[in-house]
Amino acid sequence: MKESSLVAVVVVGALALGGGTIATQLSARAEQEAQAPPPVCTVLDRSELAPGSGALYGVNLDWEDKPLADYADRLGHRPAVSVSFTGFPYDERGHDYLRMAADQVRADGQMLLLTLEPQGGLEKVTDEAVQALAADLAEINDSGVPVIVRFAHEMNGSWYAWGQQPTAYVEAYRRVAEAVHEQAPGSAMMWAPNYGGGYPFAGGEHEAEPGTADFAALDTDGNGELTMADDAYAPYYPGDDAVDWVGMSLYHWGDQHPWGENEVPEPGKFAAQLTGTYDGAGGDDRAVPDFYAEYGERRGKPVAIPETAALYNPAAGGADELAIKQAWWGQVFDPSIPQDFPQLKLISWFEWDKHEVEIDGPVDWTTTNTAAVREAFTADLPDWLRWGPEESCTAPGA
């Protein structure tokens, strides 16, 4: 029952008793209850972040263009998880941005997924920066906002300054994990490589060079070459003690290079990519390891899809926007997902309309910008998704 309706019912009931004084008292009490402050946020431990059943619904937003409150209003739900990106180590501006994100999550969401990007290289991940991060996370946790830290994602790619450096990456990740685990009990660590189709992603600025120790570590079959036959994930894994969640971004870019055409995704593509059985993108990806079986089932880690969406290029012809996106979210949110992938605990939609260098053009990844797509998306959202609370909470002690 809405609060305004509650006030009306109490007042009418009191007047029916014929006691003006009683009516006044009950009306005042109802008004006080209607204006009561929001509940205090529950401070969670990292062990409590994964739901017992179903999956948390998350979103990647351009926070400045589309605040979380606006997105929640369009969607009709508060997301359980909201994704934020920041360089690491971060400066004062980055520190303020982190607090802004936490404040938005506290008001209109539940949990923050913080993606840290060491854009200056792994050597910039100093002990001082790590300790400052852990202290900030502890304060954010104490304010009622749990955090999942996705440190240096897509480290198996060749396009980031931290890419294809397994020894340095594992060392840096473990230092971050140790500090977070010791100082911020409401924060968890996520390890999130890039989907291995196309590995070893030759031609990137940071690809491993033959003759180096990194190249040797990545040559898992020992044949002196890096090919798709080498394990795209295992050399970068920091260890079960350092990893709380595992994640993998899975997009529908198209069925083959070059990207940029508007194409409806093939049936079963999402599940096939997650399990290493996808045969597409212009080649056979079935040499890719089964990510879900190895890291979700065998190692028992909650699995996340921290980014997903389907490419729609408004500057190109081809398939219709709704047909493309609905075919993809129909796979991502299929009724069979909880039964087939019970370790899948978080799915986050990439809600951006942006220029993508891969096609040198615009891509609209969103589901809420146009009425027709938004109505179809919200109608198709399954009941096994887990959402944020229906009302805002306040920081403990505020």
Rank of each mutant, 00 (worst) to 15 (best):
V9T: 15
G19M: 09
G20T: 09
T21K: 14
I22F: 14
T24I: 12
Q32L: 13
P37K: 11
P39E: 12
P39Q: 09
V40Q: 13
L44D: 00
R46A: 13
A55C: 07
G58M: 11
L61W: 05
D62L: 14
W63K: 12
E64G: 03
D73C: 02
Y90P: 00
D91V: 02
R106I: 01
A107G: 13
L112C: 11
L113H: 13
L116Y: 06
G120P: 00
G121Q: 11
E128Y: 01
L133V: 12
N141T: 01
D142A: 15
V145K: 09
P146R: 09
E154N: 11
N156D: 05
N156K: 12
Y169L: 03
Y173L: 06
H181M: 08
G186M: 03
S187V: 00
M189E: 12
M190K: 10
W191F: 08
G197W: 06
H206T: 13
A208L: 08
E225P: 00
D244T: 07
V246Q: 12
L250G: 02
Y251P: 02
D255P: 03
P258A: 09
N262G: 03
P267W: 08
Y278L: 15
A293F: 05
E297Q: 14
R298A: 15
G300L: 05
A304P: 04
I305W: 05
L311D: 04
N313A: 15
A319K: 06
K325S: 10
A327V: 00
W328E: 10
S336D: 12
P338S: 10
P338M: 12
P338L: 09
F341N: 00
W352T: 10
K354R: 15
V363S: 00
T366R: 09
N369F: 11
T370C: 01
A371F: 07
R374M: 08
F377N: 08
L381N: 08
P396L: 11
